[in-house]
Nucleic acid binder design. Sequence first.
DNA 1: TTGTACGCGTTATCAG
DNA 2: CTGATAACGCGTACAA
Lengths: 341, 341
Amino acid sequence: MATMQDVARRANVSIATVSFVVNSTKPVSPATRERVESAMQELGYRRNAVGRALASRRTHIIALLFPALQHRFSETAVSFFTSAAETASELGYNLVLWPVSNDAEQVTDLTAGGLVDGVLLMEVQMDDPRVDRLLESGTPFALIGRTREPGALPYVDVDFENAVIDSIDHLVSLGHRAICYLDGSVGNSLENYGPVVRARATYAAHMASLGLTAITLSCDETPAAGRAAAGELLERAPDATAVIVMNEHAAFGLVSGLTRRGVHVPRDMSIISIGTSPDMAAMSDPELTLMSSPGVEVGRRGVVAIIDQLEGRTGKLPQTLVRCGFEQGQSTGPVPVRTTL
Amino acid sequence: MATMQDVARRANVSIATVSFVVNSTKPVSPATRERVESAMQELGYRRNAVGRALASRRTHIIALLFPALQHRFSETAVSFFTSAAETASELGYNLVLWPVSNDAEQVTDLTAGGLVDGVLLMEVQMDDPRVDRLLESGTPFALIGRTREPGALPYVDVDFENAVIDSIDHLVSLGHRAICYLDGSVGNSLENYGPVVRARATYAAHMASLGLTAITLSCDETPAAGRAAAGELLERAPDATAVIVMNEHAAFGLVSGLTRRGVHVPRDMSIISIGTSPDMAAMSDPELTLMSSPGVEVGRRGVVAIIDQLEGRTGKLPQTLVRCGFEQGQSTGPVPVRTTL
DNA sequence: TTGTACGCGTTATCAG
DNA sequence: CTGATAACGCGTACAA
């Protein structure tokens, strides 16, 4: 509860001097510095964040905008949240969780309120109206994800494209040629969701470049849909020996659906799941081979990206893609030897 | 960027009058109110949160203290985070994520900084030093969880005790008598973790009150440990026909471990998982029957509890236990008919 | 009903 | 090196 005023009186200096030693903003003689510091000690002084914010016009608060009414956050989201908060904390900032519906108006409320220094925008859509609002507002921000045309926008995103390529290459190295692809449902909002769109395109392109035939399936993001997809897979692609899944919840259903139908994983079919955390993957039996999405790293980099902006560190534009980590599970193996006719 | 001053000038009134209409804190004649409001409209005025905070001594910020270095939050935690943030937002508050290590010193930093009006403390331990710090600080707070002796502390907690009782009763109604219990590991920090301790005690007590034999197992919180526990179960309790699991990750392993050993779920063994979300449960095959932990409700109530304090609504002490919801899955069924010797 | 003026706790500018 | 002092944007007695 002690203010700078109190400290100043007790140390027989001006309030300005106290400010200097607190912020090391100007040189102070060792003698007076000593007096001030012991005064602070005795009074248990802590500088008031609000007063500081008003005077310096910096709150040291970063808003993490996340879509309210969100379908479902994955475990990745938790590690992202907490990692972002921790990074902010380490760098002297605070992270406030800011739910926004698709109503872009709330973005204006936020930026005009003066409470936040910068904004981290989660779940960026391919064409996201909130981004335009942020640009108008002049508030520093960074995207988690990318718009269709990121241009000069600062962003941090998961590199799902390379995850797809790595997955294909890995499977090919195991001898697989008939590699299918399963992602989230078409015809719904995911169509506009960058990761799904980009990954699917990458799958098609890379398969083509290898002279392989691309077969894409989609289903809802539920285990039940994944189980159903197992049937569809066997019907539409009877020769398939591997599936790359970009649909975490469906991946579990796909494994159990195949198993139920007598298709052994990985002996008869290899499965690799993109964007699943190791903890999750372990819950499948057999455990899933996966490309884990780097929630912690993305959270950290996102926060660093805006703080760099806020503190005027003007390096090169932060446009970062963080790669997924390959983790060998038990759901992939060499292509089965066909003892066919 | 427009300040109250700007609005006041434009409307030809004093700055105080603007404040009155903005906060409806004093009656204003319709005429001048109109002038002020259109001035605000034209200037796109938004009240500055920091100025307001400094003058009113209320930031409208609530800190959510969560344990840093704990990167294994369940899906429940996500719904808790987001629900808390949304509730706060609806009530005109902001929720900031505040990572704290076990070092209770950080709690002092927080409360002395003047940035937050109140504190929500997650993952409360049975004997939690942070609670003492909060009490000393005088900052309004509420606990998510409970200490060993909650006394007059405001808290919101999940009612795992009744979840255990309901689980037992449900299984008993299906004819089960040999009902085992599996929870998190003993000998580690979980020993001091309220939910685990209380639920285990409740299991023992309720089984005893029914004249049934209690058999308790523990294992790490991983699917692999759960699979291993399947073996231990069959060995230690060969007559068991049901297991109540208070260890989300292990529950998955238990199911697959039993299945691998030729024990069919639910025909030979019923399993019910406490504190698992429906989304998670669906990833098991067969889908788990569960008592879902009410993350959303707990988040909402926790925030409401401190806001009530902050706004001086002095109803009865908020000490709330939120019950888990029973959700029928496919992992429970009637007790098997023993055609034994 | 409306206006004046002070205070909230700091930062920052400018003299000294 | 140190000290006044003016912002910063708003809330609120107190006065008119």
